[in-house]
Design a protein around this nucleic acid. Structure first.
Length: 570
RNA sequence: GCGCCCGUAGCUCAGUCGGAUAGAGCGGGGGCCUCCUAAGCCCCAGGCCGCCGGUUCGAUUCCGGCCGGGCGCGCCA
């Protein structure tokens, strides 16, 4: 596995090589070297980095972990300018005290990499389709969808960093019973306007936006739909409403900074005959049967709780009927791997969709479904109930207007999506300054501020051009003056980024990026407080300016992955 | 009732493919700006890591059971 250059990656390699040499020397049985961690230890006194390699080797090698650590250390080929000291501690940890020179070399590499810092090639260009949001076009996006959007987009960005070819897709349920209910809700308002009250439709949508859509039809077409054939009227109202709502959704997502490569309409699957085709194939394979005038898929054969209806007794296909053809279509478009981001309420659908794919002979492990827990809104200590039907919900747009895109994005990403999340509106709206995103952004703004200030400093004049470090001159700057505790800590955090990206991407855990950004910002703020950058000592000033550039690079990459701006001023 | 997810500081959350003294923000108490942005830094208080048992040299982390919460269990999505 290749990780963009970094100390942790270098150490990992050295440890792995040492393990092989130990085995070659016969000091340890030749077992496969298990994966081990190279991580900053919990306590500073335990060094800069530590590995559990000896302990994970202890099991298969059936040897004492401390003894293994000893031979491992003896076979480590690490030059003195990289590691000043190694020690064996606790049950068998190997602690490394990294030589400042190695940190210095690492910072130079970070700057050379620039925006590509943290990139690696594990994905090898494989094609991944991330399908997310996919909320029904029957109402504006609500706050809960924001979490789906933020998580899906961040996973997509992480995978791009790992060299996967990522496409982002939104599946639009543009037909079916919900759309029908939407059309009838619009119709109700329309007739209401012309003094022809109808009973409010069962399962109708009550939000103000429905009335607004009806008003637009009234304004455009007048009363001509009152006498029109019901079928034509319904078709038009549905179409008009779906298009209007979809436009609103697209606008909201654009403002939220979530771009999609494709909006895939469910209707096309029915119209192209793909739904019927898949049902026929399933029937040929013996996985479909008729009962109570409906068509059923035998999903229990694939681990589902009960069999599922594909075509209702009315002849109408269910939404599920299109789900399998949709995923088949994704595979047919050449994607190697599929990721769907679903809300927890769809958790029960996993078995049937995977079952359908399996029934058709696909490897269902190529479809990966990320289930995120819902977002609960709290306002004035009360839980706000959200329901599209009743129209009582806070929209994502309202949230964006209240707290801003950066805070919203960061907040949604901060927590692991598998955990339920309470979004405290009062805190987010009234005390948005307390949002952690500002802590991280402030670090970036402070760096930018120093770089601006550097224009008036003799060393800065040499090194800084228009608020940026002059790349061409960085390599010539010696960093050996960077030995302060706060400088070393900051360099260590900057160096962490590639490993964080790798782990967050492979495990689909974007919240790790936020945790990292927080740690990096903290290291910077401590450095800022303790070390003055623009000072008397020309060598030290130059070195610190280079360190700033490295820190800025890491901050920008991390914030970029989260979809949060890196401001020059605050 | 069955299935999936979750239970860590007063609040919101990190950490856990088993490891060394469990962390952050907010809230509470106390300090720090003649100096590159105090949206910052430092210190203090605050935890049977839901409970019980099992596996292990070692469990907040893995397994089982219980308790508590969320979601699902439609010819709705």
């Amino acid at each position: 596995m290749t990780v963009a250059a970094g100390i942790r990656a270098g150490l990992r390699q050295a440890i792995h090589d040492a393990a092989l040499r130990v085995q070659a020397a016969g000091d340890l049985p030749a077992v496969a070297v298990p994966t081990f961690e190279v991580e900053p230890p919990r306590h500073r006194s335990h060094g800069d980095l530590a590995t559990n390699a000896a302990m994970v080797l202890a099991q298969p090698a059936r040897a004492n972990p401390r003894k293994i650590a000893e031979v491992l250390v003896r076979h480590l080929a690490l030059p003195a300018d990289r590691v000043t000291r190694t020690e064996i501690a606790g049950p068998g940890f190997i602690n490394f005290f990294i030589a400042p020179d190695w940190f210095h070399a690492s910072m130079q590499e970070v700057i050379r990499a620039g925006g590509a810092y943290g990139q690696c090639d594990v994905g090898r260009g494989r094609r991944v389709l991330v399908e997310f949001v996919s909320a029904n076009p029957t109402g504006p996006l609500h706050v809960g969808t924001g979490r789906n959007a933020a998580v899906g987009e961040a996973v997509a960005r992480l995978l791009e960093k790992l060299d996967y070819a990522v496409s982002r897709e939104y599946y639009v349920n543009d037909c079916g019973t919900q759309v029908d209910a939407l059309g009838r809700s619009v119709e109700w308002h329309y007739f209401q306007h012309f003094g022809r009250p109808l009973p409010f439709p069962e399962d109708g949508y009550r939000g103000q936006y429905v009335a607004d859509i009806a008003a637009r039809i009234v304004a455009g077409d007048g009363p001509r739909w009152v006498e029109a054939p019901a079928e034509a009227r319904q078709a038009h109202f549905q179409d008009f409403a779906v298009r209007a709502i979809l436009e609103d959704i697209q606008g909201t997502l654009r403002d939220f900074g979530v771009p999609f490569d494709r909006w895939f309409g469910e209707r096309t699957l029915h119209e192209s005959g793909k739904v019927a085709e898949v049902i026929a194939r399933l029937r040929d394979l013996g996985h479909v049967y008729d009962q109570d005038r409906a068509v059923w898929f035998r999903s229990t054969a694939f681990g589902d709780d009960k069999d599922r209806v594909l075509v209702r007794s009315t002849g109408q296909p269910t939404y599920f009927a299109a789900d399998v053809p949709y995923h088949v279509d994704k595979f047919e478009r050449g994607f190697d791997h599929l990721i769907d981001v679903w809300g927890v309420d769809h958790q029960g659908d996993i078995a049937r969709v995977k079952g359908g794919l399996q029934a058709l002979g696909y490897d269902s492990s190529r479809l990966e479904i990320l289930i995120h827990q819902h977002v609960r809104l709290r306002e004035g200590g009360e839980i706000v109930r959200m329901s599209k039907r009743t129209g009582e919900f806070v929209t994502l747009r309202e949230l964006l207007e209240a707290v801003g895109r950066d805070a919203a994005r960061y907040f949604f990403l901060m927590t692991h999506y598998a955990n339920p999340m309470d979004f405290d509106l009062d805190l987010a709206v009234r005390s948005s300054q307390e949002n952690p995103v500002y802590y991280v952004q402030y670090a970036h703004a402070r760096i930018a501020s120093i770089l601006r200030e550097a224009a008036g400093h003799p060393v800065g004049q040499q090194l800084v051009r228009e608020g940026r470090i002059d790349q061409a001159r960085v390599a010539a700057v010696g960093l050996s003056a960077l030995t302060h505790e706060a400088e070393l800590a900051l360099m260590a955090r900057v160096d962490d980024l590639p490993e964080v990206i790798l782990k967050a991407g492979l495990r689909r855990e974007p919240h790790r990026v936020c945790t990292y950004a927080q740690d990096l910002a903290e290291a910077f703020h401590v450095f800022y407080t303790q070390c003055r950058v623009l000072g008397e000592d020309a060598g030290l000033t130059a070195a610190r300016l280079v360190l700033l550039e490295a820190a800025r690079t890491a901050l920008r990459v991390a914030l970029g992955l989260a979809g949060v701006a890196a401001p020059e001023r605050m």
